[in-house]
Design a binder for these strands. Structure first.
Lengths: 352, 352
DNA sequence: TTGAAAGCGTTACCAT
DNA sequence: ATGGTAACGCTTTCAA
């Protein structure tokens, strides 16, 4: 039986209770709590026993206060002129302003889109004594993969954002299951279209893993469940509204009997302008990705029939939580970090 | 120019900086910060000027630590044998376990369903020195409304959960826009059904505001956008799987040509059993509410075509944040507290 | 290998 | 009406 008074601790046990029960000083308790060296095995065991006996759980708020811990997090985003990336950047700004009062600083940096080398350079320029964690939204290439691994090796937490980098050792992926998103789009498309015919798919880039996965999911459902709808080869729009607006008219003229369009990437503004200019056929079904001012308007006017989306606010919040938890080497709530595949119709858009 | 040293504060300003710049003590700064009495007007102004000049923002973590603030929150849930309420209760448990280490205790108490008096009694039994805030999921009646107002008058924060109580002075509503949810269900129903015919609506109770609002939204869209589908009078299932299972066969026999079923309340297990037993017609469209183990299975097997849902985890998290913010009289992030109207198809259900 | 004591930013009690 | 000072639970020197 260890020395020390055994009066029941009031409320949650603190390190003071641990010290008392284990018969050691606060400093020693802190050493074993934080795995610091210079403590005898037997002492460590005494403290660990006290921890177990009392069911001690550290108060992170107090710890961070004493430690003057600050989390410095960075978001690397493509410098694309599309509304989804804009929304992400805006969320980094807004949440950064709020979190600045909670020992957390967020920063966003842009790199040219579809440019692996730019991401590599940015990543390689990061130092662990300036940056605790980074969220990367970019293409999966061997060079990017290696740069991610180097950053992690230097002690920087890394999550992939929107598009996964599964070949790398990134700590987590923050985004939706894009294969399932593609399946979802196909299901809606198949059930909304009432007559057989061809369906057009607009994609972004072969480099973008999220786009490839969506296309794969879309094709899978179309083939098995809606064989009367023929999916045409992808049109590569590079997330560029102007390019899409330029390409589309010819294609629609070439396949006038098209029954549906799946816009699986960004650049919806171009699609919308084209559809509005040509006058959309009443029975054409259009399904796009990401709820933005552009797609909201299209849903409202009925030009788009459905939008598959992932919430930019949630993406950023989840990335922040994951990056902090990784930096602190503490566990997190799996279920809270799953980004849902949202479906929006004109009726269930959130206000404003 | 006030007395005191003016060396630039390093990092974020603290009350020490305020005290120095305003030339007063910490205690006085604290008094004005917390609106405590016993400070001269001129002193208050000196401090307020310092606050403004330095852009001071209080560190709530440190404040809560010193204050040993504990939030004691209560959830009043109907004692209904349905999976959605079960999910809510489970979330209160799970999140309560996590939050217990963050100076927050959650408790859930059951009251008989559709029993206003039980809620009134529960509410009236609450004392502000045992309970800081309460979330109420129940029918909107004058008696409930008055009890809510009394609780608030006693200094207890109150939010309505799932079903709003707009006639009361509840601090907030935590839940989806049920009118929009009904509209959404109708939109899917209308677009999934390919031939004219009657549509059946199963509701819960005339007392439940959420059910009434869903029905209203459903009817609105059906009438204007899908007039070829005739919406039959509601079947009242009282959220009771057994009752629903018992009522339904006769109705389906009476209207064999029914093209769609909108299960707008709880008790899906009964509907599912009935459909599975009778053998669902291939072209019957079934849309229900709330993603639960029961509805997940129905979506997977294709018995349900779509499920409108609100995430139980988010509901509880949002209620907690709102209740805390109200108790502390601090503002909150509107956009984060909007509960989304989720649409689930077999393809976009979250795993497990 | 261990402990005492001074913070971290805020609150609260007791003086004056 | 104001100030000093000991907490809150934890971390971090600095000594021993």
């Amino acid at each position: 039986m260890p020395e020390g008074d055994l009066s029941p601790p009031t409320g949650k046990p603190t390190i003071n209770d641990l010290a008392r029960v284990a018969g050691v000083s606060l400093a020693t308790v802190d050493r074993v709590l934080n795995g610091r060296p210079g403590v005898r095995r037997t002492t460590i065991e005494k403290v660990n026993k006290a921890i177990a006996d009392l069911g001690y759980i550290r108060d992170t708020a107090a710890a961070n206060l004493a430690r003057r811990r600050v989390y410095r997090l960075l978001f690397i985003l493509p410098d694309a002129a599309n509304e989804f990336v804009d929304a992400l950047a805006a969320q980094v700004d807004v949440q950064g302003a709020q979190l600045s009062h909670q020992r957390t600083t967020l920063a966003a940096r842009s790199v040219p889109p579809f440019d692996p080398q730019a991401i590599v350079d940015m990543l390689d320029g990061l130092s662990p004594d300036e940056t605790d964690g980074v969220a990367v939204f970019g293409p999966e290439t061997p060079a990017v993969r290696d740069a991610v691994n180097r950053a992690r090796a230097r002690g920087i937490a890394v999550v992939s954002l929107v598009a996964d980098l599964p070949s790398s050792e990134r700590d987590h992926f923050v985004g939706i299951d894009n294969y399932a998103a593609g399946r979802t789009a196909a299901r809606l498309m198949g059930r909304f279209i009432h007559e057989p015919g061809p369906v057009l798919v607009i994609t972004g880039s072969r480099l973008a893993r999220d786009h490839l996965e969506r296309r794969a999911g879309f094709d899978a459902v179309m083939t098995t469940d809606f064989p009367h709808l023929e999916v045409l080869p992808s049109v590569e729009g590079r997330d560029d509204p102007d390019l899409i607006q330029q390409l589309l008219p010819d294609i629609l003229r070439a396949v006038p009997q098209v029954r549906g369009i799946y816009s699986s990437a960004a650049g919806n503004a171009g699609l919308l302008r084209c559809l509005e200019r040509e006058g959309r056929r009443g029975d054409l079904v259009v399904i796009a990705h990401e709820l933005t001012p552009v797609s909201r308007r299209a849903l409202t006017t009925g030009v788009f029939d459905a939008v598959i989306s992932q919430n930019a606010g949630h993406l950023v919040r989840s990335a922040v939580r994951l990056l902090k938890a990784t930096a602190d080497r503490v566990p997190f709530d799996e279920t809270q970090e799953r980004i849902r595949i949202d479906i929006y119709l004109q009726d269930n858009m959130p206000p404003e």
